[in-house]
Simulated assay, not measured.
Amino acid sequence: MSEPTDHLVIGGGAMGLATARQLASRGASVRLLERFEAHHTRGASHGSTRNLNNAYDEPAYLDLFDEATTLWRALESETRTELLGLHGLVTHGDEGVVASAHDALVARGAAVSLLSADEAGTRWPGMRFAGGALFSAEAGIVHAARALAALETSAIRHGAIVERGEQVLRIEPSANDARVRVTSRGREGGIRELVADHVTVAAGAWTAPLLDGLIELPSLTVTEEHPAHFAPRSASIPWPSFNHLLPPEPLASFAAPVYGMPSPGEGVKVGFHRVGETVDPDARTFRASDAQRATLRRYVTEWFPGLDPDSPTEISCTYTSTDSGRFVLDTVGPITVGAGFSGHGFKFTPAIGRVLADAAMGHSTPPEFFRLAAHGAR
């Protein structure tokens, strides 16, 4: 017998939980299915911290950032959990990108300033700077693990049903609804079928195979990334969150941007952006190559005098990236998809949940910047 619901959300990471929370808070019946246990390490949402980074010049991202900050604060108030740490963000390296982000943020009234390399180095002696730096006072970190727990607590409080150990095998859309075949760990009989008026897929690295033949998605590349926490040489050194936008010259040996942030109790997180090997998310090594490890250590040695380069605690996570780095947010028939967050989506989580819930309920379409047509798909 089929189990009916208004909305079925597939994927219990940050985006799925935020969507379920939004839908449930509006009075819809919502069931969320997640294949793995809470706070599992196989996807992209786990870990203690994420960059709360507003160093963008595209209005679509800045709109999401402003909305997300407001919604994070509302979730903090509801769950009585501190989710944001606004110690600031410093962005440096590519002066053109720095200037463009500065101008866009100033136009929106954001609290930003431009610092010389000497000024930045005096303020943050644990880091080295070459060229000017953009400081954003209204940025910092999201406490990611706390955020997942708060989103789930709120979703359940509003009536959402969260089920773990549920692997979706197939989605069969029709004109008015969708049938979903699920294999359930620990359930007698194993296989069950659910029927939903609408299905929202926020399945991270598993999105493309799940929607194969149903929605024409842009290319979604799954990579395994390996940032690491490094120990500060002194507890007295102040740390901002940071973006280092490495230009091709004279720093060609580090051919990727770097991001990072202080992670309370763990050190300072440092990682290259989108350098990992393409992987099957079900067949990962959970280990960086020796070459990747050596390159990250060398980078920390050169650019972070306040960190011990011989103290890395390695992390493993997946990126699911579009070629452009833009997200995919759209609806086709009874299916809404949120995918391709490309390593920079977490800070926008509650705003993306709102966008996906609006789309799933037919209230509005996502911003054109993120829709399938903008990716050349449909």
Score class of each variant (00 low, 15 high):
D323S: 15
P334K: 00
S316A: 15
G325L: 12
H344I: 02
P305A: 09
E314D: 14
V328D: 15
P350M: 09
I315C: 08
T322Q: 12
V332T: 06
L307N: 05
M361I: 00
A351S: 10
I335L: 11
T320V: 06
S311H: 01
G325E: 09
I335D: 05
D358W: 02
R326E: 15
P309Y: 06
S364R: 14
T322G: 06
A360N: 01
F341M: 13
V337L: 05
G325Q: 06
H363R: 13
I315N: 13
G345C: 01
S342D: 09
T365I: 10
G333C: 11
I335K: 00
I352L: 15
H344K: 04
S316V: 02
E314L: 14
S342E: 06
A339E: 04
P305T: 06
G345R: 04
G362V: 04
W303A: 12
G338I: 03
G340K: 04
G353W: 02
G325H: 08
L307V: 14
V328K: 12
P350S: 03
S342A: 02
H363G: 09
P312A: 07
S342M: 08
D323A: 15
A360M: 01
G333D: 11
T336V: 07
E314A: 13
F346A: 11
S324E: 15
V355A: 05
